[in-house]
Protein backbone atom coordinates (compact mmCIF):
# COMPACT_ATOMS: atom_id res chain seq x y z
CA UNK A 1 0.00 0.00 0.00
CA UNK A 2 1.23 3.49 -0.85
CA UNK A 3 0.87 6.44 1.52
CA UNK A 4 0.82 10.17 0.96
CA UNK A 5 2.76 12.75 3.02
CA UNK A 6 0.06 12.69 5.72
CA UNK A 7 0.26 8.96 6.09
CA UNK A 8 -3.05 8.40 4.35
CA UNK A 9 -3.08 5.38 2.11
CA UNK A 10 -3.34 6.07 -1.59
CA UNK A 11 -5.88 3.93 -3.36
CA UNK A 12 -5.22 3.66 -7.08
CA UNK A 13 -8.01 5.01 -9.24
CA UNK A 14 -8.07 1.71 -11.13
CA UNK A 15 -9.13 -0.04 -7.96
CA UNK A 16 -11.88 2.49 -7.27
CA UNK A 17 -13.14 1.96 -10.78
CA UNK A 18 -13.20 -1.78 -10.21
CA UNK A 19 -15.36 -1.35 -7.11
CA UNK A 20 -17.68 0.97 -8.99
CA UNK A 21 -18.02 -1.50 -11.87
CA UNK A 22 -18.69 -4.32 -9.44
CA UNK A 23 -21.64 -2.39 -8.00
CA UNK A 24 -22.95 -1.41 -11.43
CA UNK A 25 -22.80 -4.99 -12.65
CA UNK A 26 -24.73 -6.33 -9.69
CA UNK A 27 -27.96 -7.94 -10.87
CA UNK A 28 -29.98 -5.71 -8.56
CA UNK A 29 -28.52 -2.44 -9.80
CA UNK A 30 -31.15 -1.71 -12.47
CA UNK A 31 -33.94 -2.36 -10.02
CA UNK A 32 -32.51 -0.23 -7.23
CA UNK A 33 -31.14 2.74 -9.13
CA UNK A 34 -33.54 4.55 -11.43
CA UNK A 35 -34.22 8.21 -12.13
CA UNK A 36 -33.72 10.68 -9.29
CA UNK A 37 -34.61 14.36 -9.22
CA UNK A 38 -33.15 15.14 -5.81
CA UNK A 39 -36.56 15.47 -4.23
CA UNK A 40 -35.27 14.48 -0.79
CA UNK A 41 -38.21 12.29 0.19
CA UNK A 42 -35.94 9.33 0.97
CA UNK A 43 -33.70 11.42 3.19
CA UNK A 44 -36.64 13.12 4.85
CA UNK A 45 -37.92 9.72 5.95
CA UNK A 46 -34.54 8.15 6.77
CA UNK A 47 -34.10 7.54 10.54
CA UNK A 48 -30.27 7.85 10.75
CA UNK A 49 -30.41 11.09 8.79
CA UNK A 50 -31.57 12.70 12.03
CA UNK A 51 -28.42 11.68 13.82
CA UNK A 52 -25.60 11.51 11.29
CA UNK A 53 -24.35 13.35 8.28
CA UNK A 54 -25.91 10.67 6.11
CA UNK A 55 -28.39 10.91 3.26
CA UNK A 56 -29.80 8.18 1.02
CA UNK A 57 -30.38 10.87 -1.61
CA UNK A 58 -26.62 11.46 -1.74
CA UNK A 59 -26.02 7.71 -2.00
CA UNK A 60 -28.34 7.48 -4.97
CA UNK A 61 -26.99 10.60 -6.64
CA UNK A 62 -23.42 9.35 -6.18
CA UNK A 63 -24.37 6.07 -7.81
CA UNK A 64 -25.92 7.91 -10.73
CA UNK A 65 -22.90 10.19 -11.09
CA UNK A 66 -20.79 7.40 -12.61
CA UNK A 67 -17.86 8.85 -10.69
CA UNK A 68 -15.88 6.02 -9.04
CA UNK A 69 -14.31 8.56 -6.70
CA UNK A 70 -17.69 9.46 -5.19
CA UNK A 71 -18.60 5.82 -4.67
CA UNK A 72 -15.26 5.17 -3.05
CA UNK A 73 -15.72 7.97 -0.50
CA UNK A 74 -18.85 6.19 0.75
CA UNK A 75 -17.26 2.79 1.22
CA UNK A 76 -15.44 3.63 4.40
CA UNK A 77 -18.06 4.97 6.82
CA UNK A 78 -20.99 6.33 4.90
CA UNK A 79 -22.68 3.10 3.87
CA UNK A 80 -22.52 1.74 7.41
CA UNK A 81 -24.70 4.52 8.82
CA UNK A 82 -27.77 2.97 7.18
CA UNK A 83 -30.19 0.93 9.36
CA UNK A 84 -31.43 -1.09 6.37
CA UNK A 85 -34.97 -0.22 7.31
CA UNK A 86 -35.95 0.43 3.66
CA UNK A 87 -38.18 3.36 4.47
CA UNK A 88 -36.47 5.11 1.55
CA UNK A 89 -37.55 2.39 -0.86
CA UNK A 90 -41.11 2.54 0.48
CA UNK A 91 -41.49 6.26 -0.20
CA UNK A 92 -39.22 7.21 -3.13
CA UNK A 93 -41.56 8.45 -5.86
CA UNK A 94 -39.26 7.03 -8.54
CA UNK A 95 -39.14 3.58 -6.89
CA UNK A 96 -35.42 3.83 -6.18
CA UNK A 97 -34.01 1.79 -3.35
CA UNK A 98 -31.10 3.66 -1.77
CA UNK A 99 -31.14 1.08 1.06
CA UNK A 100 -30.90 -1.68 -1.54
CA UNK A 101 -27.90 -0.22 -3.33
CA UNK A 102 -26.26 0.36 0.06
CA UNK A 103 -26.67 -3.36 0.74
CA UNK A 104 -24.92 -4.06 -2.56
CA UNK A 105 -22.02 -1.78 -1.61
CA UNK A 106 -21.78 -3.36 1.83
CA UNK A 107 -21.65 -6.81 0.34
CA UNK A 108 -18.73 -5.68 -1.80
CA UNK A 109 -16.98 -4.31 1.29
CA UNK A 110 -17.56 -7.58 3.15
CA UNK A 111 -16.59 -9.82 0.22
CA UNK A 112 -13.39 -7.92 -0.27
CA UNK A 113 -12.61 -7.74 3.45
CA UNK A 114 -12.41 -3.94 3.64
CA UNK A 115 -11.29 -2.51 6.98
CA UNK A 116 -14.65 -0.78 7.39
CA UNK A 117 -16.45 -4.11 7.10
CA UNK A 118 -14.13 -5.75 9.62
CA UNK A 119 -14.69 -2.95 12.09
CA UNK A 120 -18.44 -3.06 11.75
CA UNK A 121 -18.69 -6.84 11.99
CA UNK A 122 -16.38 -7.18 15.00
CA UNK A 123 -19.10 -6.71 17.65
CA UNK A 124 -21.12 -9.38 15.92
CA UNK A 125 -18.48 -12.09 16.12
CA UNK A 126 -20.35 -13.96 18.88
CA UNK A 127 -23.52 -13.93 16.82
CA UNK A 128 -21.60 -15.01 13.73
CA UNK A 129 -20.05 -17.86 15.66
CA UNK A 130 -23.36 -19.18 17.01
CA UNK A 131 -25.09 -18.73 13.73
CA UNK A 132 -22.57 -20.33 11.43
CA UNK A 133 -21.43 -23.06 13.80
CA UNK A 134 -24.75 -24.04 15.45
CA UNK A 135 -27.51 -22.43 13.42
CA UNK A 136 -28.59 -20.47 16.51
CA UNK A 137 -28.55 -16.71 16.62
CA UNK A 138 -28.73 -16.06 20.34
CA UNK A 139 -28.27 -18.43 23.25
CA UNK A 140 -28.66 -17.92 27.02
CA UNK A 141 -24.94 -17.79 27.69
CA UNK A 142 -24.63 -14.79 25.43
CA UNK A 143 -26.62 -12.73 27.91
CA UNK A 144 -23.85 -10.94 29.75
CA UNK A 145 -23.82 -7.48 31.27
CA UNK A 146 -20.87 -6.38 29.12
CA UNK A 147 -22.64 -7.15 25.90
CA UNK A 148 -26.15 -6.01 26.63
CA UNK A 149 -25.89 -2.86 28.74
CA UNK A 150 -29.00 -1.57 27.00
CA UNK A 151 -31.10 -4.35 28.51
CA UNK A 152 -31.38 -2.33 31.69
CA UNK A 153 -30.40 -2.81 35.35
CA UNK A 154 -31.59 -6.43 35.61
CA UNK A 155 -29.16 -7.78 33.04
CA UNK A 156 -26.68 -8.61 35.83
CA UNK A 157 -29.25 -10.77 37.62
CA UNK A 158 -30.51 -12.26 34.36
CA UNK A 159 -27.04 -13.49 33.46
CA UNK A 160 -26.50 -15.52 36.64
CA UNK A 161 -27.55 -19.11 37.39
CA UNK A 162 -28.57 -19.64 33.78
CA UNK A 163 -28.88 -23.41 34.06
CA UNK A 164 -31.33 -23.19 36.96
CA UNK A 165 -33.36 -20.50 35.28
CA UNK A 166 -33.56 -22.52 32.09
CA UNK A 167 -34.97 -25.45 34.07
CA UNK A 168 -37.67 -23.19 35.48
CA UNK A 169 -39.06 -22.52 31.99
CA UNK A 170 -42.14 -24.78 31.69
CA UNK A 171 -41.33 -26.05 28.19
CA UNK A 172 -38.56 -28.13 26.63
CA UNK A 173 -35.42 -25.98 26.57
CA UNK A 174 -32.77 -28.71 26.13
CA UNK A 175 -31.61 -27.86 29.65
CA UNK A 176 -28.51 -26.36 28.09
CA UNK A 177 -27.30 -22.80 28.14
CA UNK A 178 -25.05 -22.66 25.11
CA UNK A 179 -27.86 -23.15 22.61
CA UNK A 180 -31.37 -21.79 22.26
CA UNK A 181 -32.70 -24.88 20.55
CA UNK A 182 -31.48 -28.24 19.44
CA UNK A 183 -30.06 -28.57 15.97
CA UNK A 184 -29.57 -32.11 14.67
CA UNK A 185 -26.07 -32.93 13.35
CA UNK A 186 -27.58 -33.68 9.90
CA UNK A 187 -29.11 -30.21 9.82
CA UNK A 188 -25.82 -28.65 10.88
CA UNK A 189 -23.98 -30.50 8.13
CA UNK A 190 -26.50 -29.29 5.58
CA UNK A 191 -26.12 -25.79 6.91
CA UNK A 192 -22.34 -25.99 6.51
CA UNK A 193 -22.75 -27.13 2.92
CA UNK A 194 -24.98 -24.14 2.23
CA UNK A 195 -22.50 -21.77 3.89
CA UNK A 196 -19.70 -23.34 1.85
CA UNK A 197 -21.59 -23.03 -1.42
CA UNK A 198 -22.75 -19.49 -0.71
CA UNK A 199 -19.23 -18.40 0.18
CA UNK A 200 -20.17 -17.45 3.74
CA UNK A 201 -17.16 -19.18 5.31
CA UNK A 202 -14.86 -17.50 2.84
CA UNK A 203 -16.28 -14.11 3.72
CA UNK A 204 -15.78 -14.78 7.43
CA UNK A 205 -12.23 -15.83 6.71
CA UNK A 206 -11.54 -12.51 5.04
CA UNK A 207 -13.17 -10.27 7.64
CA UNK A 208 -12.22 -12.18 10.81
CA UNK A 209 -9.53 -14.88 10.36
CA UNK A 210 -9.37 -15.89 14.03
CA UNK A 211 -13.12 -16.32 14.26
CA UNK A 212 -12.93 -18.35 11.08
CA UNK A 213 -10.48 -20.78 12.73
CA UNK A 214 -12.75 -21.30 15.73
CA UNK A 215 -15.72 -21.93 13.49
CA UNK A 216 -13.77 -24.33 11.28
CA UNK A 217 -12.73 -26.42 14.30
CA UNK A 218 -16.39 -26.88 15.23
CA UNK A 219 -17.36 -27.56 11.63
CA UNK A 220 -14.66 -30.22 11.30
CA UNK A 221 -15.78 -31.88 14.55
CA UNK A 222 -19.41 -32.04 13.49
CA UNK A 223 -18.60 -33.18 9.99
CA UNK A 224 -16.41 -36.03 11.23
CA UNK A 225 -18.93 -37.17 13.86
Amino acid sequence: MEYDENGVSIVPSEFKKEIFEEARKDFRYEEYVRGCLNCGVCTGGCPPHRFFDFSPRIVLQNMKSKDPELIWTMMDEYIWACFQCFTCAMICPFLNSPGGIIAVLREIAVRRGFESAKKVLKPYSRVLLKLTAYGNQLSPDMIQPDFFPDWGPHIGYASTDLAVKRKAIPMPTLQVTNLAWDVAPETMKELYDIFDEAGVFKIIESVDPSLYEIIQDIVDDVRSS
Binding site: C39, G40, V41, T43, G44, G45, H49, R50
Partner: peptide
Protein backbone atom coordinates in the same frame (compact mmCIF):
# COMPACT_ATOMS: atom_id res chain seq x y z
CA UNK B 1 -40.97 16.25 7.64
CA UNK B 2 -38.56 16.29 4.74
CA UNK B 3 -35.18 17.34 3.44
CA UNK B 4 -34.39 20.82 2.21
CA UNK B 5 -32.02 19.56 -0.44
CA UNK B 6 -30.40 22.94 -1.00
CA UNK B 7 -30.09 24.71 2.32
CA UNK B 8 -31.37 23.47 5.64
CA UNK B 9 -30.94 19.74 5.25
CA UNK B 10 -33.45 17.73 7.28
CA UNK B 11 -36.39 19.66 8.64
Amino acid sequence: KGEDTLLRGPF
